[in-house]
Simulated assay, not measured.
Amino acid sequence: MGVAINAYVRNEKPKVTKREGFIPGVVYGKDFENILVKFERNKLIGLLKEKGEKAKISYTLDNVKKEGIIKEIGRDFATGEIIHIDIQSVKGDDTVKWTIPVVFTGKELLNNRGLYLQVYSNEVDVEAEASLIPDNAEFEVSSMNYGEEVKIKDLNLDPVIKLAKDSETILAVITNS
């Protein structure tokens, strides 16, 4: 499903966890009680840089490989430092609600033509089986022209994926200033 990372059961307070070089978190799912966990700070930050903050991940907990999606990342308001992470444990056929990022590619070529992408939303809320939801939705904008719009329906998501907003919702518009 995604990148693998080790999760360790946590019994200590979050302050102690952070001091030891870990990021505290919680793993939850529909078939079990919430589990307090911790992740190695550097490995988790590396995973987030590589996959993004809304990634599907594989994690190992008590020597058992599991799948999950990152539901929330808590940050310190002053420093921006990650202070907590929530993971929803899922199986491939579990239906989940999730927010996936929209990645607009080709903006440089658009800018070279004196056009710009005005983004109204760079994420889409969806619901489907976990295995059908992509890590992100890419949309190529380099060949678009002034005034053209990118709508949710343009993302070419699998038709079985339910959208939280109308498919005509505008995500971005091509402008010239």
Rank of each mutant, 00 (worst) to 15 (best):
K13Y: 11
R19I: 09
I57K: 00
K30P: 10
E50L: 08
I45Q: 10
P24G: 09
K51C: 07
E40L: 09
L48I: 12
P14T: 15
K43P: 00
D31L: 07
E50Y: 06
A4D: 12
Y8T: 11
V9K: 15
K38Q: 13
N11H: 14
E33Y: 12
I5T: 05
K18P: 00
L36T: 14
N42A: 06
G25M: 00
V37P: 01
K30Y: 13
F32Y: 04
N6V: 09
E33W: 06
K30L: 06
L48C: 03
A55W: 10
F22M: 09
L44C: 08
R41Y: 02
G21I: 07
K30E: 14
A55Y: 08
V16H: 06
V27K: 03
A55E: 02
P24A: 09
K38P: 01
R10N: 13
Y28R: 04
N42E: 14
V37G: 02
G52T: 11
V27L: 09
V37L: 12
S58E: 08
V26R: 01
L36H: 12
K13G: 07
I5Q: 09
F22L: 02
I45P: 04
F32M: 12
R19Y: 14
E50V: 02
T17C: 15
A7V: 03
K15M: 06
K54H: 09
L47M: 06
F39K: 00
K15T: 13
L47F: 01
I23A: 11
G25D: 08
P24Y: 12
I23F: 05
K18I: 15
Y8P: 00
N6D: 13
V27P: 03
E40S: 10
V9F: 15
N11R: 14
A7G: 12
K49G: 03
D31Q: 07
K13F: 11
